[in-house]
Design a protein around this nucleic acid. Sequence first.
DNA 1: CGTCCCGTTGATCCCTATCAAATGTAGTGG
DNA 2: CCACTACATTTGATAGGGATCAACGGGACG
Lengths: 246, 246
Amino acid sequence: MAPAQLSRSLIKNLDLFRSLPDAELDAALEKAQVCRLAEGDAAFRQGEVANRFFVLLHGHLKVVQTTPDGEQVVVRYVSPGDVFGIARAMRRTHYPASTLAVEESLALSWQSSEWDHFIASNPYFAANALQTVGQRLQDAHTRIQELSTEEVEQRVARALLRLVDQSGERTEEGILIKFPITRQDIAEMTGTTLHTVSRLLSAWKDRGLVVSGRKRIVVCSLNDLIRLAEGPHNPVAGVPSVERPA
Amino acid sequence: MAPAQLSRSLIKNLDLFRSLPDAELDAALEKAQVCRLAEGDAAFRQGEVANRFFVLLHGHLKVVQTTPDGEQVVVRYVSPGDVFGIARAMRRTHYPASTLAVEESLALSWQSSEWDHFIASNPYFAANALQTVGQRLQDAHTRIQELSTEEVEQRVARALLRLVDQSGERTEEGILIKFPITRQDIAEMTGTTLHTVSRLLSAWKDRGLVVSGRKRIVVCSLNDLIRLAEGPHNPVAGVPSVERPA
DNA sequence: CGTCCCGTTGATCCCTATCAAATGTAGTGG
DNA sequence: CCACTACATTTGATAGGGATCAACGGGACG
C-alpha cells in the first residue's frame, strides 16, 4: 500500500502517535483512508456529522467558522503533521467549523469510532490529545486577549508573526509564508477588514518591513514586526532610518 | 471527615467523576484538601507552578488573565461543580491565569500528580476531561467570533445572557445573576470599557430590560435581550422580497 | 461620618469600518 | 497570443462607534 508506506515515517513522529507501538501503528494505517484535496476543497463542512478525523500529511488547510449572518472567522491554519476534525473525541456530534484546502493537500482519515480503539490500545493517547486540545485552548485565549485589548496593527503584526513561525521559509527577500493567503484571510484571523489589512501591508511595504503580492507575503524585517506587535507605546522619535544589512 | 462527607454527593454527580467507582471516589476524597476562599482571595495566580487542581463546591470564582501591560481579561466564571486549575493535565507547568473568589467560596483540591492516578483508575476519566476542555475550546471560539464580528451592544447582551444561563435565579423583578459582578467585570468579558457597559445598562434600564445596582444585575425582559444579542437590525427572515433578476 | 469603591454622564477625538472605484494579476478559451 | 473574466489588491473619502478624558453622585462599610 504505497501511500501508507509513504506516510508511515511521517505519522510515527507526530505528537499524537508518538507513543503508539509499531504494530498498532501499522494496524491503524491499515484502516486509514487517503484523502486528496484540491485547492478550495473541503475535508468537511461546518454542521456535518463528525464521522471522521484526520491527520494532514502535505499541504495547508484553513479552519473557518461561519456566523449565522454569513461572516467568516479563520480559526487556524493546519500544517502537515497536525490533527484536525477531532470534534467527536470531545463528544461533539457535528463539526463546529469547515476545513478547506488553501493549496493541493493530502491527508489521512479514520472513522471517528476508531478513536476509542486508539485510546484503548495506548494509555498515553488520550493524554496526548488532551495536550493538543489544551494548546489550542491556550491559543484561543491568547487571541481573545488580543482582540479585547490590542489595536488592529498589533493584532495583524502578531498574526503575521504566528504564520511565519508556523510556516515561514527563509528566502532571498526574507521569510516567506509558504502557502497562499489573502488580505481577506488575514482580516478574518484578526477581526478586521481586508481594506485595513491592505493599508497596513502597504505602509509596512513602504517602510521595508514586508514584500507582498497576490496571495503572497514575505517578512523582511522580523525585528521591526516584533516591535509593532509589542505595541505602539514605543516612542518612535529619533529612530535611525539606517537599515542593518544581514 | 466532615467536609468530605458533605461533598461526596456533590462530587459523584460531576461530569468529570461520574464514571469513577465509589471506592475510588472515596479514596480520591481522602486525598483531597479543603480550600476556603474569602471574597477576593485567589485559589492560584497566573504564572505560579500548577501544583494542584480543583473542584468548586460552593460560591463563585472568576478566571482572569493579565496582559504584560496590566490589562485584564475575564476568561470565565466558575460555578459549583466546575473543575478548574487543570493546566497540568494539558502538560502546562504553570497556570495561565489567576482564579479569584468573587464571593465566599469553598473548593476541593488535589496534588496535580493525582491526576495520573485518576486517569489510571478509570479509562473514561481522560475522555471526560477531553470533553470538558473541548467545551471550553468551543466557548472560546464562540467568543472569538463575537469579538471579531459583532458590535459592543450585542456582545454585552450575549455575555449577560450567558451569565443568566449559568447562574440566573428567578425573582420578583426578573432573573438575578446570583453573584456580585461589576461593570468593569463585564467590560473585561466583552472587550470594552466600563463606561460603555454602564451606558448600555443605563439605556436598557430606561427601556425596562434590566434593573441593576452596585454589583448586582437583574434581567427583566429576556426576550428583548435575546433580540439585542441577535443583532442590531437584522433583516427578518420570511420577508417576501423580490430580488432575483433574470 | 468620612472614605473608598462603584456607577453615571457629558464632551471630545480618533481609529477603523464603510462606501466607492480604479488598478493589477492569474487563468481560460478561442 | 490575446481578449475576456474572475478575483486580489490598492487607495481615497467619509462617517460613526466607542475609547478616552474628566467630574460628579451615591451607596457600603469601617
